[in-house]
Write a protein that binds this DNA or RNA. Structure first.
Length: 899
RNA sequence: GGGCGGAUAGCUCAGUUGGGAGAGCGCGGCCCUUACAAGGCUGAGGUCACAGGUUCAAGCCCUGUUCCGCCUACCA
């Protein structure tokens, strides 16, 4: 006999290997079956699995397993992302430990080193996905730097360039002085901080008077090339065109007027630093001002900063302030909140920085992407995210795609140093081609004159192609034809813009078809206090630790149960605890069933069974209902509803009621009855395991394999997914069963309330209308067994004893005679409380019925319903009061006091 | 500055076209009943944030307020 407690450890590994050996996760490139495809959001190759991945992967696996079982040709395509900056940072850190740097190593050797690192550690996250039970087609695993995907990247770059959608130019970009690279706008995280607004006096060159400007970044005055005021600002009208002397450096700069300036902010005069601020950059272009770069790529001050050269940018700020102060030019410091950009990889404060970069002209691409969602060709679920998506798409700005790092897709651009003719010169010597050219296509200069661009592409540029590059594009492959567009993309909202939006743009552009039909956006997982999980806060929940402690199935079920749409998830360990118990419950249900199957028992298909008991028919009906509910919930991505339906059904209906109800059949003498129960319970349990399998694959496979069922596939993961036809839905059976259950609960109620131990045999008298009474009489053995009542009387015209506790139910009144076994006073108090409750309900209903408008305007069935309720409550109150009178009388006669 | 979401039992949260408020955990009571004490049975506990409005009827629809959270932005 198996253990009393489920032990996941060996079982999980055993079945995962079994599934892999049998190739169940392998998709067919061509198939008569309908296709179902999910591409995984590729985790960073440097990363290790965090709880967000675990949720993501669990939901994808549920969908994939469900569709696979439902007869689809299913592909869940896994892979990893090369994560340019993050990975390079990791390897650089390693080098530092050895006292090396990437520059010391040189580009080629460094990149080789990263590949080595990737080969050695990059598999970790993939391994972790397997631990979670992910049913990915591992034969199709991809990496964004694979040869094929790199070809896709080059192809896309070249085509976009040729269409004029990629350009190169000098602009202000977000620069991370620590990672030493440009970043896109999205890669900057803004944080509100309390800072200061400094008011600084700029004197006129002629020595007469001054202008005060306000700034949050005083050190940038070293790069000022003008002061701007609003053209309509009366205060400053007469100084436009005059020359100021820059504090400290003494350079002369003009006062200009520009619409951009907000007269109501600060002093209404703004210093203009074209090389270090995006707005100032625009102003400078309008007014043809010079650009002075006062900083280096390391975030230290350049030669242009004069006496501050070589200082760190923040140190320089202090020094500039001190010098202004001592020169009497610092007029005021004012509290001011401002938002500061930080690098999303290393949290360093971003520097707006003028440099030459590559950009994607994005608006033409965004236009189609907006349309695709507008037209419903792509459905975002939950639709609450539509507005964010549209908002971002409509205000989108060009995408800076060049990165000054070494790990990534090298930009497929070469520069001709010779530029031997006019054509070459008008092209600025730029050659864009998928592969290194032998000669300059413009002027014919030799290969030695051609130098490849040093930069690599934004990692998200390659991820944007993921849904088709992984399927073989730019080649026209079977996979591409079979699985593109993919079915659904499942991911968190944090990469909606980074990734989802860009995949839509690229998919539409290069495949002329949306990359996926649905986008399911799940919530972010926070800790139990609602804080974002982060290593620095130390509040991370490690998914692998969860699987170790509770088993993968329990953990997965928890995640699914938490995955309600549209709200953040506060993760609490004790929920996992609860679902671990659930898994254990299923385990023990299986033990119970198997221990009651006898050698030689033939499992008969349900449809061939005669003489099904009420309990059998009921559980089959419930099974049918739950199967239908789960399918519907999954269809709509309501994972939590599916999970809670299954939980409720399995534990409370199947285990608590059904298994208890068939015990008499199991232990009784009638073998026909016993075998009918055995066949039914196995059918229902087998079907339940199938329903549960996408959520908790390991334990279900284990238990399923142990069931004595013939003529079935080799694995639960390829069994047909149950539908409502697996049971026999019968509403009248469910109604009858409800009556029986209500009778049992009523008697248990009395037991519980009066603290009567189970060992005490009791008698019950049930008063009900004949229709109900007939049902109860027919099923009296269930009531007797489950309520532990050795004798039960059922009827309408039966006298109820004076010494009885009462439970008033929907369709019956139950009396339990208790000569002297209860405290009259306690029972009267209990009944009085009940009466109060019913009286409240009664008066609420009564209020409606006495309202003429309600009677006239409410739908007829609602009115009837309320009339019936009124009667019901009134009857209940009457019965309860009647019983109070009776036990009072009994108490008086028997010397028990009541006050 | 703009936008979005949340406020329901002690805790974490469901509540799908507006008709008698639910679950899990926790808590109280009774039970080691031969599948399971990671269990069984049973119970207590809620002016659904606040103020208005629409409606015969509001947790649900509308308006405003307060408090949280998030996204986004060229306020120097």
């Amino acid at each position: 006999m198996s253990e009393k407690v489920y032990n996941p450890r060996d079982i999980e590994e055993k079945w995962y290997n079994f599934w892999l050996e049998k190739n169940y996760f392998r998709a067919e490139p061509k198939s008569g079956k309908p296709s179902y495809c999910i591409v995984i959001p590729p985790p960073n190759v440097t990363g290790s699995l965090h709880i967000g991945h675990a949720l993501d992967v669990t939901l994808q696996d549920i969908m994939t397993r469900w569709k696979r079982m439902s007869g689809f040709n299913t592909l869940w395509l896994p892979g990893t992302d090369h994560a340019g900056i993050a990975t390079q940072n990791v390897v650089e850190k390693e080098l530092k430990k050895e006292g090396l740097s990437r520059h010391a190593l040189g580009r080629e050797a460094f990149v080789k080193k990263v590949w080595e690192w990737k080969e050695q550690y990059g598999g970790r996250i993939i391994h972790q996905l397997k631990r979670l039970g992910a049913s990915c087609d591992w034969s199709r695993e991809r990496f964004t730097l694979d040869e094929g995907l790199s070809r896709a990247v080059k192809e896309v770059f070249v085509r976009l360039y040729n269409e004029g959608l990629i350009y190169r130019g000098d602009y202000i970009i977000n620069w991370c002085p620590r990672c030493h690279t440009a970043l896109s706008d999205l890669e900057v995280e803004h944080e509100e901080k309390k800072g200061k607004l400094y008011y600084i006096r700029y004197g006129f060159a002629n020595g007469n008077g001054h202008v005060v400007v306000a700034t949050t970044r005083p050190e940038t005055l070293l790069g000022d090339t003008a002061v701007a005021v609003n053209p309509d600002d009366e205060r400053y009208k007469n100084i436009v065109g005059k020359i100021l002397k820059l504090p400290i450096l003494g350079r002369e700069i003009p006062v200009i007027s520009d619409e951009f300036v907000d007269a109501s902010f600060g002093t209404g005069a703004v210093k203009v630093t074209p090389a270090h601020d995006p707005n100032d950059f625009e102003i400078a272009r309008r007014h043809d001002l010079p650009f002075v770069k006062i900083m280096t790529g390391e975030g230290t001050m350049s030669k242009e900063a004069g006496p501050y050269e070589g200082q760190d940018r923040f140190k320089c700020r202090e020094n500039v302030l001190r010098d202004l102060e001592s020169a009497g030019l610092l007029v005021q410091r004012k509290e001011h909140t401002l938002s500061i950009g930080h690098c999303y990889r290393c949290k360093t404060i971003i520097e707006p920085y003028l440099s030459k970069q590559w950009f994607v002209k994005i608006r033409p691409l965004a236009k189609d992407a907006i349309k695709a969602v507008n037209d419903g060709r792509i459905k975002i679920i939950p639709p609450i995210w539509d507005s964010s998506y549209f908002d971002w798409m409509k205000n989108i700005k060009d995408w800076c795609i060049s990165r000054q790092i070494w790990w990534g897709h090298r930009i497929p651009v070469w520069y001709c140093r010779e530029m031997q003719n006019a054509t070459c010169r008008t092209q600025n010597g730029i050659i864009v081609a998928p592969d290194a050219p032998d000669v300059c296509p413009h002027c014919g200069a030799g290969a030695s004159a051609l130098i490849q661009d040093e930069d690599v592409l934004d990692t998200w540029f390659s991820s944007a192609l993921w849904p088709f590059s992984t399927l073989g594009w730019p080649d026209d492959t079977d996979d591409l034809r079979t699985f593109y567009p993919t079915s659904v993309l499942i991911t968190g909202f944090d990469i909606l813009f980074f990734w989802v939006a860009r995949m839509i743009m690229m998919g539409l552009k290069f495949r002329s078809e949306e990359p996926f039909r649905h986008v399911y956006i799940h919530a972010l997982i926070r800790d139990a206090e609602g804080q974002k999980m982060s290593k620095s806060k130390g509040n991370v929940v490690d998914p692998l630790e969860m699987t170790e402690t509770y088993g993968t199935d329990a953990f997965r079920f928890t995640l699914a149960a938490f995955a309600a749409q549209g709200r953040d998830i506060k993760f609490s360990i004790n929920r996992v605890d609860g679902y671990r118990n659930f898994i254990n419950k299923i385990w023990n249900a299986s033990r119970f069933i198997l221990m009651n199957v006898r050698e030689g028992d033939v499992i008969t298909p349900v449809e061939d069974l005669r003489n099904l008991s009420l309990a059998d028919k009921w559980i089959l009906s419930r099974l049918s209902n739950v199967a239908s509910g789960v399918n519907k919930a999954l269809e709509e991505y309501r994972f939590n509803d599916a999970a809670s339906d299954l939980y409720q059904f399995t534990w409370h209906e199947f285990c608590d009621w059904y298994l208890e109800m068939i015990k008499p059949a199991f232990y009784g003498d009638d073998d026909d009855v016993r075998r009918t129960a055995v066949s039914t319970v196995i059918h229902v349990f087998e079907t339940s395991l199938a329903l549960l399998h996408p959520f908790i694959p390991f334990v279900t496979e284990e238990l399923w394999q142990n069931l004595p069922v013939r003529n079935r596939p080799d694995s639960l993961c390829i069994r047909r997914y149950p539908s409502d036809t697996d049971g026999i839905r019968d509403n009248s059976v469910e109604k009858e069963m409800e009556l029986v259950m209500d009778a049992i609960v009523g008697i248990r109620n009395i037991r519980g309330e009066l603290n009567l131990p189970p060992s005490l045999e009791i008698r019950a008298i049930i008063k009900a209308q004949e229709e109900t009474a007939a049902v109860l009489r027919e099923n009296i053995s269930y009531i007797s067994k489950l309520a532990k009542a050795d004798s039960i009387e059922i009827g309408y015209d039966i006298g109820n004893p004076e010494d009885a506790a009462i439970s008033v139910r929907q369709a019956m009144e139950i009396f339990v005679p208790l000569k002297g076994l209860f405290d009259v006073e306690v029972e009267i108090r209990r009944l009085s409380r009940e009466i109060v409750k019913f009286e409240e309900s009664l008066s609420a209903v009564n209020k409606k019925l006495r309202n003429r408008e309600f009677m006239e305007k409410a739908p007829r069935e609602i009115v009837e319903e309320n009339k019936a309720k009124y009667q019901e409550f009134a009857d209940k109150i009457h019965a309860l009061q009647g019983n109070i009178e009776k036990i009072k009388k009994w108490g008086d006669q028997n010397g028990q006091e009541n006050r």
